[in-house]
Design a protein around this nucleic acid. Structure first.
Lengths: 186, 186
DNA sequence: TTCTTTTGAATGAATATCATTCATTTTTCT
DNA sequence: AGAAAAATGAATGATATTCATTCAAAAGAA
């Protein structure tokens, strides 16, 4: 029996299911038919909402990166903590904050998925961290001119530690915090 | 007419051709047949040397990353420069050193290729940078305990700047150098 | 309210394009 | 010549993508 839904709802349903499957089995191993079957619709329907499998993949990652960034940053908005306090209090690791999939997305099959997601998250995080640093600079907490470069290093620099999988969450957080405090002269 | 070659030679030929095509058109858009045709052999031959398309892709990236790292590090071996000098003299950007493809591998279609290659290069660079930092620490040039974390930040941190494409090579190098000198207190 | 029309969401068979396999052919080496 | 290794390319099986058709439900007419 055919079920019709609001385009927005259906699109979201496809995105969520795609994210789940891509994350579990990887891009190659997940077929459009798999995704459609998991939802209970015809494969053709996916093409009503996304022009190609790759576009669907990109959208899924894009949206999920937004969610992660939101979870990561969302909690402490415009407060007045010092940069050092922010770093000491921060979850440090995006994974630590995630309540959905991210932390389950480790492993060999989905390494590429994980890598791409991480890069996308970094990309979205940079401008936000840039603002943090800008504010800290104005308050005289740090003195370095090229704030954008600093923000990039702070964000992407974490990747190395994050992508290391023989470390506990705790360990990763601690090492990131300590380096940031050292590097920014805090 | 059928041409036979030394396995090592043929394998290399496949790797090089694969790298070129994957870099130009991306993973999805490049078929095994494309690669074979470009060399002038049958598709089946690729499977004599690599178990799957993905394995071929991984090998190609792996090997190219080795070449890039070699080009990047190779020149100044075991000398006695200070860390600060090394940073000031360094090409800073892997791309700057590359004489083959890397710098041509930008653009939308091959962004994923480029990203994966960059991550692989970082991965290989970390242990080398770690040694540099270790030496500098022993000479008292830097004082930070977690050398591995520092190395990761120094290497991966560059990614943000490297992956920004609206900057000249010069600009990238300069910004990276300045941040590193600041962050490591040099 | 009940019937009719219209829209666009959903279907799924059909097509095209590969990745991958393997029986066969050709070359090389002893 | 005979064995071993390298190369071929037709065949197979998936699966991404297309599109003519079907149907649910909203909007309008009676």
């Amino acid at each position: 029996m055919r079920v019709t839904k609001e385009p927005e709802v259906r699109k979201q349903e496809i995105l969520n299911t795609a994210l789940k499957l891509f994350g579990e089995k990887g891009y190659e191993k997940t077929s459009i038919t798999d995704i459609a079957k998991a939802i209970g619709v015809a494969q053709g329907l996916c093409y009503r909402y996304f022009p190609s499998k790759e576009a669907l993949f990109d959208s899924a990652i894009e949206q999920y990166a937004d969610i992660l960034v939101e979870q990561y940053i969302g909690s402490d908005k415009g407060n007045d903590k010092t940069l050092r306090q922010i770093i000491e209090d921060m979850p440090s690791t995006v994974e630590e904050r995630d309540t959905t999939y991210y932390s389950a997305f480790h492993g060999a099959e989905n390494k590429k998925f994980h890598d791409q997601l991480s890069l996308k998250v970094c990309e979205k995080l940079v401008p936000l961290v840039e603002k943090l640093l800008q504010r800290a600079k104005q308050k005289g907490e740090i003195q370095f001119d090229d704030i954008q470069a600093a923000a990039m290093f702070c964000v992407y620099g974490q990747l190395g530690i994050l992508l290391t999988d023989d470390l506990t969450q705790e360990d990763k957080s601690k090492r990131i915090r300590e380096f940031l405090i050292f590097a920014l002269h805090l």
